[in-house]
Design a protein around this nucleic acid. Structure first.
Ligand SMILES: NC(=O)c1ccc[n+]([C@@H]2O[C@H](COP(=O)([O-])OP(=O)(O)OC[C@H]3O[C@@H](n4cnc5c(N)ncnc54)[C@H](O)[C@@H]3O)[C@@H](O)[C@H]2O)c1
Ligand SMILES: NC(=O)c1ccc[n+]([C@@H]2O[C@H](COP(=O)([O-])OP(=O)(O)OC[C@H]3O[C@@H](n4cnc5c(N)ncnc54)[C@H](O)[C@@H]3O)[C@@H](O)[C@H]2O)c1
Lengths: 213, 213
DNA sequence: TTCACATTGCTAAATTTTTCACAATTAAAA
DNA sequence: TTTTAATTGTGAAAAATTTAGCAATGTGAA
């Protein structure tokens, strides 16, 4: 299912709605109100209703939204029906943490390979994910139709790795190194740096502290 | 230095500008143009100039911005002069990765303690950071004036940990578990979940793929 | 059957964030 | 000294995102 021009923020929240709903799933409760979802995610009920409106989902006036239906619909929109395969490049601290975190989380989004340059890590299996030598990357990506790459190599290596991933036909990249990358427009790039998050927390914590004292 | 109501997005970018500038720092180059900063971070030059305008920094019309001065000014704004101390709660895969990543990165923002419940991890030092039993958390936070907490325990434990952190006097929280937390308004909370990032990448990668094919 | 009322769905307004467009400026070149 | 050209700084416009406000509605109680 395609809904044209879903805002970036809405896509993020849909992912969060689904995860929150999956977490609260229980037998007794089949429906949920917009204000309940909102409370879980620290946003307003209007925001939730607006997002659901954008994906064309209608709730029941007295019972709220059907949890099972909603989870399913979000899946229809943000997942790809054939599923998408993911590779992690750089099996260090972070790479391992990511693999262990994803294990068994999403059926439509599966990490099926890791790549590294360190011989100690190659040809071993971590949490069900085999690790290959970086030289095999292009072949394995093409053979397995991997469309998404997660970059967790040292930042100095990141640009070269990104280039290889793009040449291998990857469609989306999640970059955890602090080195900003350049990719062609047909590849979607998302960058995340914990330091930015932490500095933001530090800034607003400091500010709050002044305001509330 | 306080500038009132700096937009959230601007705070994030200031952190990124500083990091990007620190990374490109060299002897030959003392100045940088807005379009150079913009290119590094995939944003527009106007955006850069607007942000710098908001913090009241003026560049040189022909030479651009003085790199050293700018880094210093950003520090004056987003850092706290006394520095802020940080604790990591939950020294698993992710907790260790975070500590190793921060080692020696920011002088004004230092991780000085970790807490866990697993006896194997307690009373050991990881990358220079000592790990204590979770029961000592409140005392150690108060004694060392730790104002920021990073939560990387299993998500089931997160709400209780957050509550304890708040009671211990923490001012800012960075939550890496997928469990949304509730904190009082005087505590700044930032939540990050990799699954949201990855699902977003997957969604837009899929979309791009349809658009460009 | 009627009524009361909590909730949805949605238009319009408000707010936040980004971009446009261009005057002002200044360092270097002529 | 004058000219040239590139860049900054910023008011105003545009775009994106969030919120307000409220009619419509359907459910359960009276
Ligand atoms: N640790 C964190 O929490 C964290 C957070 C944010 C970002 N990062 C960034 O993520 C990256 C990885 O962090 P980490 O802590 O896992 O580092 P790490 O050193 O533990 O892991 C890096 C891994 O990449 C491998 N590698 C090196 N060069 C390679 C190459 N050319 N091809 C393939 N593999 C290669 C190494 O063998 C190693 O296994 C770094 O850039 C770091 O800045 C880390
Ligand atoms: N691994 C990732 O990349 C990743 C990414 C995003 C979020 N997360 C989330 O971060 C959290 C940690 O992930 P992880 O991979 O490091 O898990 P992990 O199991 O490796 O580590 C959890 C650590 O917390 C400790 N712990 C458990 N209960 C505790 C308590 N009550 N007090 C103090 N410490 C306690 C455990 O002893 C362990 O050391 C999880 O909630 C996970 O969902 C992980």
């Amino acid at each position: 299912m395609i809904i044209k021009n879903l805002p970036h923020k809405t896509v993020e929240r849909l992912s969060q709605y689904r995860r929150a709903l999956l977490m609260t799933l229980s037998k007794e409760k089949t429906h949920v109100f917009s204000h309940e979802i909102a409370q879980m995610l620290h946003i307003t009920p209007v925001q939730v209703r607006r997002d659901l409106m954008l994906i064309g989902y209608s709730g029941n006036l007295r019972k709220g939204y059907d949890i099972k239906e909603l989870i399913e619909l979000i899946g229809k929109i943000i997942d790809s029906d054939k599923g998408q395969r993911v590779a992690v490049v750089g099996l260090g601290n972070l790479g391992k943490a990511i693999i262990s975190y994803f294990k068994g989380k999403r059926s439509k989004l599966s990490i099926i390979a890791a790549f590294d340059i360190n011989p100690d890590k190659i040809n071993r299996v971590y949490d069900g994910v085999p690790c290959y030598h970086i030289d095999q990357m292009t072949d394995i990506i093409k053979q397995n139709n991997i469309s998404i790459g997660i970059i967790s190599v040292p930042s100095t290596e990141a640009p070269e790795i990104a280039e290889t991933l793009v040449l291998s036909g990857i469609k989306g990249l999640l970059n955890f190194t602090p080195k900003p990358l350049n990719v062609p427009p047909y590849v979607y790039l998302e960058e995340y740096d914990m330091i930015t998050s932490l500095e933001k927390v530090a800034f607003f914590a400091k500010k709050n502290d002044e305001r509330f004292k």
